Simulated scan of single mutants.
Amino acid sequence: MAQGRSGAMGLVALVLVVFGLLELSTATTYTVGDSGGWIFGVSDWPNGKNFLAGDVLVFQYSAVHHNVVAVNADGYNSCSVPPGSTTYTSGNDSITLQKGANFFLCGFPGHCSGGMKIQANAA
């Protein structure tokens, strides 16, 4: 009887792994700003897109002139970088969306107010 239970547990584990892989494979990768990349005026880019938790945003930009900072709603609305915010500087950053509102801006002075910020809401 114990072998039957361990076999069933193994099958359950296998099914969970397969469903986990299927969930990962359904994630969509988006290049922020499309062919223009992470540039001034990109703030409307998310409009009309249906993001899901696990989708990946790719930010492509000149690392000499820009960066990407993951901020909270207050930082987004005020174009400021709250303490503890994560800053990306590679020029080709891949960021996985979390469920809910995700906020990003360029932390270089004046860039956020120039439209280098996006809000991506993931279901």
Rank of each mutant, 00 (worst) to 15 (best):
T26K: 09
S113F: 01
A70P: 06
D34N: 12
W45I: 05
S113M: 03
Y88N: 01
P83A: 09
R5N: 08
I118T: 05
A13P: 05
H111Y: 10
V58Y: 05
F59H: 03
I118G: 05
V71Q: 04
A27R: 11
I95N: 09
A120H: 01
F104E: 00
G110D: 02
G54K: 08
A2K: 14
G41I: 12
S94R: 10
M116W: 05
A70H: 14
F40C: 12
S94N: 07
I39C: 08
G114S: 13
S94I: 08
L14W: 14
F40R: 12
A53E: 04
D55P: 08
N102H: 03
N72V: 05
S94K: 13
D55N: 11
L105R: 07
G110K: 10
K117A: 00
P83Y: 12
T26H: 14
M1Q: 10
N47A: 15
M116F: 15
T26R: 15
A122P: 07
D44Y: 06
S90Q: 03
S62G: 04
L16N: 12
L22Q: 14
D34P: 09
F19M: 14
D55V: 09
V64M: 09
G115D: 08
D55I: 10
W45H: 14
L16V: 09
C112V: 06
L14P: 09
L11N: 11
G20H: 07
L21V: 12
C106R: 02
T96V: 11
Q3V: 10
V32F: 07
L16E: 13
S94H: 14
V69S: 04
G20M: 11
A101N: 04
P82H: 05
V56I: 15
C106I: 06
L105A: 11
N102R: 03
G41A: 15
S43Y: 13
